[in-house]
Design a protein around this nucleic acid. Structure first.
Length: 374
DNA sequence: AATCCGGGGCC
DNA sequence: GGCCCAGGATT
């Protein structure tokens, strides 16, 4: 099937449009592959405006791939705090170590080597190789998928590998006909500013002359996506144990949700048909306290008061968080190995919901510090 | 092919 | 409340 408009023509139109309309984003001021790699990783499923401050702070803290490789994982996570998808930070850190160990600290410019690094998938590989190294490797992200399913008028769900393959192949033809750096960024810029999800500005689009979706009048209906499942409902019962200026904390497991992040000691329970009763909650909190602070639990059956609540929505989970304070005014011992001074809370990497709760609770600390106020 | 993995802005 | 965002890893 021959293209209605030659690839060289459309590629040139797109690159010209990009030169005239590009936004001056921080990562467009450099060709440093490390900086571009950092930006592409942060931009995964994350908006440009959200990324900008993180990008500057991260590069200031870790200016080179060697600096990143030499950092502690906790420092890297702390710089990523609030950005979400924390595996990106852990993988980027691991990948930096591999670049130092296996590639002498030089970021590889070939698809096989770079694409093998942890956290580098097809998109990021194509983006870094085309933008930083000028190689004709397609970078198919959400923007490109939208632009090209419209341009080619593809109505099959974009989750299907065949659709992504068809799009990648079309992009490859354009890459071979133009400067890969500007073509890749032009495609994404077009998706971000003109070929937007709702009310696309087709009259301002350089690809309009060849756009099958626009010609068929179905551009706005594309791309087609599969429906999503409902989110799981999870109750989170957290403990606020503050004593003489120390607060009990715990680190989440190295894998799974919010891997490696810090939180108030908590139990997580998936919601069944019935809501948790107060007695259920007390029992769960007592069990947690027994593991966490045996000396406190051994002093007798403890009761709890709810001092804060929050709802937090993840992509696939709704968290219903309640923070409880153990009642009582004199504890025999507090295991300080599981606590940090209040002033040190800010140095740990917290998920958003806990960061907000702590800001709320640590402020009037004296009120809840069992060692200070009766 | 489906699910897991954050967080925020917009409608 | 649902949708989308410069996706990747795992099963």
């Amino acid at each position: 099937m021959a293209a209605a408009v030659p690839d060289t023509h459309m590629a040139a139109r797109l690159v010209d449009w990009y030169e005239q309309n590009r936004r001056e984003l921080p990562w467009r001021q450099t060709r440093d592959p490390y900086a571009i790699w950092v930006s592409e990783t942060m931009l995964q499923q994350t908006r440009v405006e959200t990324v900008i401050p993180y990008y500057h702070a991260f590069l200031a803290a870790f200016p080179t791939v060697r600096a990143l490789a030499a950092a502690a994982e906790d420092e890297v996570l702390k710089r990523w705090q609030g950005l979400g998808y924390y595996s990106r930070a852990r993988n980027l850190h691991r990948a930096a170590k591999q670049v130092v160990e296996r590639h002498h600290g030089v970021i590889p410019d070939d698809e096989a080597s770079f694409g093998q690094l942890p956290g580098v998938g097809p998109y990021t590989c194509g983006a870094v190789l085309s933008i930083a190294f000028g190689k004709p490797i397609p970078a198919v992200d959400g923007n490109v998928l939208r632009v090209m399913t419209r341009y080619l008028s593809l109505s099959d769900p974009i989750e299907q590998p065949a659709v992504k393959a068809r799009v990648a192949s079309a992009v490859k033809a354009w890459l071979d006909a133009a400067d890969p750096n500007r073509l890749t960024q032009g495609l994404m810029e077009l998706g971000a500013t003109v070929c937007v999800p709702k009310s696309p500005r087709c009259t301002a689009c350089p690809l309009q002359p060849g756009c099958a979706g626009s010609a068929a009048g179905i551009a706005e209906e594309l791309p087609v996506r599969l429906p999503r499942r409902a989110r799981k409902q999870v109750d989170v019962l957290a403990l606020w144990i503050a004593h003489h200026g120390y607060v009990a904390v715990e680190q989440r497991p190295r894998e799974g949700l919010l891997a490696g992040m810090w939180q108030l000691p908590a139990v997580e329970v998936e919601r069944g048909p019935k809501a948790l009763s107060d007695a259920d909650k007390t029992a769960l909190l007592r069990d947690k306290l027994a593991v966490l602070q045996p000396a406190m639990a051994a002093a007798g059956d403890v009761d709890f008061a709810c001092i804060a609540q929050a709802k937090h929505v993840f992509t696939h989970i709704d968290w219903h968080v309640e923070v409880y304070r153990p009642l009582g005014d004199s504890w025999p011992q507090l295991d300080l190995s599981r606590c940090v001074p209040v002033q040190a809370l800010k140095d740990l990497a917290w998920p958003r919901v806990y960061d907000r709760l702590i800001a709320e609770l640590a402020q009037p600390l004296a009120v809840f510090d069992t060692g200070v106020v009766k």
